[in-house]
Amino acid sequence: MSSATDRLSTATGRIDRSLQPLAGVYNRLFGDYFGEMNGLQFVLIFGTAAALLTAPLWGNFGLVRAMTVAAIWAIFAMSWDIQSGYTGYISFGHSVLSGAAGYTTAMLIHNVNPELSMMITIPVSVFAALVVGLLVALPSLRLAGPYFSLITFVSVLIFYRLIPSFSQYTGGETGIQSVEVFTYDPFARYYYMIIPMFLIAIVLTLIARSNIGLILMSIRENEAAVNAAGINATKFKIFSFALSSIPMGIGGVLLVHFGGGVDPTTFIVVDRSIEMIAIAVLGGMSSILGPLGGAFFLIVLRDYVLTEIAGFSSPIRWTVFWGLVLVVLVFVRDGLFRKLWHGLDRFGGDRR
């Protein structure tokens, strides 16, 4: 076993050295902004990006559809991570942010004008998510520990209960199913989702690796020390929640235009927030790209491998989904993709 391990290490070391010139060019140009990478890390990141961008060329309909859904959930998981993963303030209410955006789009079209342009509905919907995010963050982030998590949990329950109370505007339990989809072409629809996902990943990674990201991580490790250093930790916590709200709103808009409608079960219930957390945990919290990888791994597994290839029923699929998350929590607490990234780091690279 030791001999086989040594041979594998030698082989991967040679591959890394052969790829190092490419990684060196990247490190000189972008290393200060996104972190330096060794050859293996470079090929992992850019090879994965190339595979995602060309998926319609090699994937079948079922796989591409699952990857389209995964792109939306990747946005949700990365958005949750920049707030909860980095600050350590775990939110159980992020689905209320995507729900605010989705419902704003649907209600504008349903109640105001069915011909409203997306150039109007999309920015208004993202702004609605930001407003709701601030309404949740301002009172809750002055608290600590479980009290913050409880308030975010209650915010979902309040939003969910308000929907049937204003059913003439929200459509009640059945929701509103009159939203225009971006396109019915499955491959074009994929790019409508994957391109915003990449842009959001780049922006959030850039922020996470900046001084702002360092402050957010410092809050997670020792908030009292951050305040003692003269930095207003509450201000940065509120900022992180507001920052998280914007891509959550974008994801909510993409989801409503993907399905052509909105309803409380798809957008609001706390299960959606728990799924975001599960994806981030499986991929690796406080890493941005970890939750992205976790989204594609879990959603493709659930919606394509277990559904179309294995033919499992819904209860079995969800059992496998949550069972896998439980195994990762017990045995790979840093997440699968953070574990992989740190494993490649022994050849030289970045550990963040």
Rank of each mutant, 00 (worst) to 15 (best):
L255T: 06
L255Q: 14
H257Q: 13
F258S: 00
F258E: 03
F258T: 03
G259T: 12
G260K: 11
G260Q: 08
G261I: 04
V262F: 11
V262I: 14
V262N: 11
V262G: 10
D263V: 01
T265A: 09
T265Y: 05
F267M: 13
F267Q: 07
F267W: 02
I268E: 00
I268Q: 00
I268R: 00
V269P: 00
V269I: 13
V270G: 01
V270P: 10
D271C: 00
D271M: 12
D271G: 08
R272V: 08
M276N: 09
A278E: 00
V281M: 11
V281H: 03
V281D: 04
V281K: 02
G283L: 01
G284R: 05
G284V: 05
M285P: 03
S286H: 07
S287M: 10
I288T: 13
I288S: 12
I288L: 13
I288K: 13
L289N: 10
L289A: 12
P291G: 08
P291H: 07
G293W: 07
G293C: 12
G294I: 06
G294Y: 09
A295L: 11
F296S: 02
F296A: 01
F296T: 02
F296I: 01
F296R: 01
F297Q: 01
L298E: 05
L298R: 02
V300H: 04
V300R: 04
L301K: 04
R302S: 12
R302I: 03
Y304I: 05
V305G: 02
L306Q: 01
T307F: 03
E308I: 06
E308W: 10
A310C: 10
G311S: 03
G311I: 02
S313A: 14
W318N: 12
T319P: 02
T319A: 15
T319V: 13
V320A: 14
V320C: 12
F321W: 15
W322D: 14
W322F: 15
G323N: 04
L324A: 11
L324H: 05
V325E: 05
L326N: 11
V327P: 10
V328I: 15
L329S: 10
V330T: 13
V330W: 12
F331G: 12
V332N: 05
R333W: 06
R333K: 14
R333V: 11
R333E: 14
D334F: 05
G335P: 13
G335Q: 14
G335I: 15
G335W: 14
